[in-house]
Simulated assay, not measured.
Amino acid sequence: MIDFSDKNFENLLKTMLGNVPGDVDKREESLINTALGPAGYALEDAYINLEQMQAGAHVQTAVGSDLDACAADMGISRKSATAAVRLGVFNVSVPLGARFSTNEASAVSLVVTAVSPEYQLACEMPGSVGNNYTGDLAAITYVDGLTVAQVTDILIPGENEESDDSLRSRCIDHLNSNPFGGNIASYRESVGAIDGVGGVQIYPTWDGGGTVKLSIVGSDGMPASGELIDTVQTAVDPTQNSGQGYGLAPIGAQVTVTAPTVISINVLATVTVANGYTLEQLTEPIQTAISLYIKTVRDSWAVPITAGATDYASVIYRARVMTAILSVTGVVNVTGLLLNNLDADLQLTETGAEQQLPVLGTVMLN
């Protein structure tokens, strides 16, 4: 890329004045200096525009609409914001299209989009805002006999519009991995682009030739709901295990979509606290610190050990848990740390037969 960093007004004016004969007065406020000034500013502005155009022409440096244009050249588009789909609980039958509102200051409205086998409520405002509230609902649509209206589980997480960093990463992965015709990169790219999917582990020939298992998590990093699994199954292989190639999967592929099993990580430790602190004060911050570390493990759950391969590893390291505890202000030392009653790192199972996803369980501190 061309470096335009030295194309500023001062340097441009100096260059122009250097081309003026030496016997002409070039001092500030001289006639030639004053005459060349506007040209210097105009050239500086032109070089700024050139620098922006150059940055916008490359995936690594483009932002906003320029990045969208670069992605479009690869057949990739930015993921739009999507609405959360939540589970509703009511004491009477509620019709399709009935609307409800959350009981909070920044209330959002939800509409009933399915009534069987369970009530599904779609947030009318796209984005992650639809994932936040759980509890009682206020009825916007009158429903006779309604006394209980609640929103509970997240069926399909709502997602905000894809960020520049995420889109840029997908474009670079597309260039480096060469997705084609049902190879590993093709599954990773096409399944990852489905609304609500936050990550996918891919296991080829997990149950014999032609079989493929896709284990997915939602955009919230937690195991995919049954509804999201059905959505992905329909998109990839709607006539499951037929090998007819009606979905994204190529002819001959028998695809099974599933979700990982949640494994609780229980922590037991003896903590020395600094003067002026109590264990009760530090318990919640310690739990938060450990939970944030475990979240980093979940965030990398779908990332293969070897780039482009299908080997995965999820490990909860004792040292990292200890570091998380020690990062809390007021903690002096940690001893006797056990994870699920073991004095060892926890290696989770990530195979075609079983996939595990860690979450924080109980934290017992002495």
Rank of each mutant, 00 (worst) to 15 (best):
I2V: 14
D3Q: 10
D3M: 02
F4W: 13
F9A: 08
F9N: 09
F9Q: 10
N11H: 01
N11M: 02
G18C: 04
P21E: 00
D23A: 04
V24H: 09
K26D: 09
K26V: 05
E28L: 07
A39F: 14
A39I: 10
A39D: 12
G40M: 02
E51Y: 08
M53G: 12
A55S: 08
G56L: 03
H58Y: 14
A71Y: 00
D73N: 11
G75W: 01
R78T: 07
V85S: 11
L96H: 00
A98W: 04
F100Y: 00
E104W: 09
A105K: 11
A107H: 06
A107D: 03
V108W: 05
L110V: 14
L110N: 01
M125R: 10
V129T: 02
G130H: 04
T134M: 12
A138E: 14
V143F: 02
E162W: 02
S163T: 13
L167A: 07
R168D: 05
R168I: 01
C171M: 04
I172W: 12
N176D: 15
G198T: 05
I202M: 01
P204C: 13
W206K: 09
V212R: 07
L214W: 12
I216Q: 11
V217R: 05
S219E: 10
M222G: 15
L228Q: 05
V236C: 13
D237M: 10
G243H: 03
G247L: 01
P250R: 04
P250K: 04
V255L: 14
T258A: 04
T258R: 06
V262H: 14
I263A: 03
V267F: 03
L282M: 08
L282W: 13
T283M: 14
P285V: 09
T288D: 13
A289P: 01
T296P: 12
D299S: 15
P304H: 06
A307F: 14
G308D: 08
Y312H: 12
A313E: 15
S314D: 05
M322R: 15
A324R: 02
T329V: 14
G336I: 02
G336E: 05
A344D: 07
A344C: 08
G352C: 07
M364V: 15
